[in-house]
Computed example of a mutant assay.
Amino acid sequence: MGKRLNGTGIAVLVFFLLLSVLIGIRLTGLGSTFPNPVGGVLKGVLSPIEKQILQLGSGIKNNTKIIWDFREVQLQNEALLKKIDQVTGDNLQLKEQVLAGMRFTELEQGQFRNPTLEKYEKVGASVINRNPTTWYRTLTLNRGSKDGVAVNDPVIGALGLIGKVVSVSPSTSEVLLILDGEGQVSALVRSSAGNGTFGIVEGTYKRGSRLTPEGNMQMLFRREDNVNAGDLVLTAGIGGVYPKDIPIGKVLEIQLDPTGLLKTAFIEPLVNFDNLEEAYIVKMAVGK
């Protein structure tokens, strides 16, 4: 049996092995021409996995770069979308301001133009009858079903909305005026700056002769709604009866109710209902 190494011999062997490795590592930095057996051995051992290690490192780097690049693009897209929304909002607000200004100017000149009405056929009509006891409620026009007029067709004047057709005969049609309590209209109050607030226009004229009229046109709002005297009231186009943006009147006065939570806008109609003689019937069924 061979002679067994004791603890001291093992320690000496390990010491010399470590010393050889350290000397080999030290000699590595002296130049490529210096013989480096330890470096060669280490290179031989590590070279098979060196390529895989480099590929793994490159993959991690590339994937990390893709993640950061994607996040950067995402942030840029979010910033662009915010700018687009802002520009779109600014353009819509500018458009509303321009349209509002045009409407006020047209009404001051005694006329209005409504692009919404261009797709509808219109027929001119004359007022042929008005009952003195319902002067501010109904009137009769000389156009009827043979002219293509139908129930719920809007009726407009030179400056704005008059009412809607409620009954038709072959040659005549009866019109319910917006002054009547049953002639409610969904409307939009728009300031000269283009700001709009929705509401319902209600006529409150009571039965009586034209010499003793009682009532007005009004809209109810919350106290914080931005509605002021002089604002223009237009149809909102909601409900399917009246096209959008037909002038109705101007806000004459604002009053708070006793609770202080609501306010009433009293509206002066643009159409002179006392002297109304002619109107246009908008044939909605034809335009749809």
Score class of each variant (00 low, 15 high):
134 T>H: 14
60 I>P: 01
124 G>K: 15
72 E>W: 11
260 G>Y: 01
4 R>Y: 02
143 R>M: 07
93 Q>Y: 14
98 V>M: 10
198 F>D: 13
182 E>D: 15
263 K>A: 09
16 F>P: 00
99 L>W: 07
23 I>D: 03
75 L>Y: 10
287 G>H: 06
86 Q>W: 11
201 V>C: 04
97 Q>W: 09
284 M>G: 05
102 M>S: 08
152 N>H: 12
17 L>R: 12
153 D>Q: 07
101 G>S: 13
83 K>W: 08
1 M>W: 02
237 G>M: 10
269 P>D: 00
121 E>Y: 15
174 E>M: 09
102 M>P: 00
7 G>Y: 08
287 G>W: 12
81 L>D: 04
6 N>T: 12
118 E>T: 15
193 A>D: 09
137 R>I: 04
45 V>M: 11
186 S>A: 15
212 T>P: 02
203 G>D: 00
214 E>Q: 10
91 N>I: 13
55 Q>Y: 14
208 G>F: 07
1 M>D: 12
40 G>Q: 11
275 N>C: 03
115 P>D: 04
90 D>G: 09
191 S>Q: 05
207 R>E: 04
220 L>M: 14
15 F>D: 07
46 L>M: 13
192 S>N: 08
138 T>V: 11
201 V>I: 13
198 F>V: 14
4 R>S: 08
209 S>W: 04
36 N>T: 02
165 V>C: 02
226 N>M: 15
286 V>S: 09
42 L>V: 14
124 G>L: 10
234 L>A: 01
101 G>C: 08
203 G>Y: 03
61 K>D: 04
132 P>K: 05
80 L>S: 09
27 L>K: 03
23 I>C: 03
215 G>W: 01
165 V>W: 01
273 F>H: 01
76 Q>H: 13
60 I>W: 05
224 E>W: 10
223 R>D: 14
77 N>R: 14
272 N>I: 07
213 P>F: 05
154 P>M: 06
122 K>T: 10
209 S>P: 06
146 K>T: 12
283 K>W: 07
274 D>P: 06
233 V>Q: 02
225 D>G: 04
67 I>P: 00
84 I>H: 06
272 N>T: 08
286 V>A: 09
208 G>Y: 04
59 G>D: 12
154 P>N: 04
90 D>S: 15
84 I>A: 05
70 F>Y: 11
245 D>W: 04
119 K>P: 02
209 S>G: 11
222 R>L: 14
223 R>L: 10
13 L>F: 03
235 T>M: 06
276 L>G: 05
38 V>G: 00
136 Y>N: 00
104 F>S: 01
184 Q>D: 03
40 G>T: 09
33 T>R: 12
150 A>H: 08
170 P>V: 15
115 P>R: 07
138 T>R: 03
228 N>R: 14
269 P>F: 07
273 F>S: 00
76 Q>R: 15
142 N>L: 01
105 T>P: 00
99 L>N: 04
246 I>W: 06
267 I>L: 03
65 K>L: 13
216 N>G: 08
